[in-house]
Amino acid sequence: MASLKALKIRIGSVKSTQKITKAMQMVAAAKLRRAQMAAEAGRPYAERIEQVVASLAARVTISDQTPKLLAGNGHDSVHLLIVTTSERGLAGAFNSNIIRAARRKADELIAAGKTVKILTVGKKGRVLKRFYPKHIAGDIDMSAIKNVAFSDAQKVADEVIQRFDNGEFDVAHLFYAKFQSALVQEPVGQQVIPVPVDPDAAKTAGAVEYEPDEETILADLLPRNLAVQIYRALLENAASEQGSRMTAMDNATRNAGDMINRLTIEYNRTRQAAITTELVEIISGAEAL
């Protein structure tokens, strides 16, 4: 049995851990609210541009003039995985879920004989380097960014488009965690280049005048659409990260509480045992006289 002193120190240390996890949980809860609001505020724009791009994409016929971001470059051999993660850990399974989703896709593509390149956005995604040392195409550092702004997403999108124009890859997938609630964050991988076309979208908008023409508008909107998708992914990620951290830290706080209870009981028992032994010693000593 551990000594009284050791137990006391142990209880103290668990208590201070609990204080930290409790504080982190509260900070995450406050940040979650803000991140959720940002994600909601960004929705109207994303929905509109998606609608417009979908209805335009369904109207144009694929030809040489069609922007490459929509039609693809005619190949399907090099895939780029854009993996967005957070900058910090201690957020439960948030980062590992995204990374697992990306790895599953990467393994699938490699097994199918495709070339896989990985672009990581955010520090925690860099562990992918360990699994695929030859496939890392780059890393975008987000450590200086506190609240994601559209211009940050734009930078990522510009880099991706530049690589696409240079012919570095044919198809791009974007990985992030979709925020459903503080308890549930679903890792998703979605194809962003070429833009998947929904054939149902064509039926909207009857006679619409285009100024200039459809192709020019598309060429203008497609890069913007990519930036919006990435922006949305980053916002969803921010909300998911905080939600996941909040839940993880709530669990940690509860676990620490349980541990403190257990240790306190053990401490009291040990103390009682010591007192009993002492009493027995005194009494038997007195009887011997």
Binding site: V52, L56, G206, A207, E209, Y210, E211, P212, I217
Partner: peptide
């Protein structure tokens, strides 16, 4: 201020998309 010239939009304008 559209790419191909300014245009005013009033109520009941015809459907249009412009950069």
């Amino acid at each position: 201020p559209g790419t191909e010239g300014d245009f005013g939009v009033l109520e009941q304008h015809m459907p249009l998309m412009s950069s």
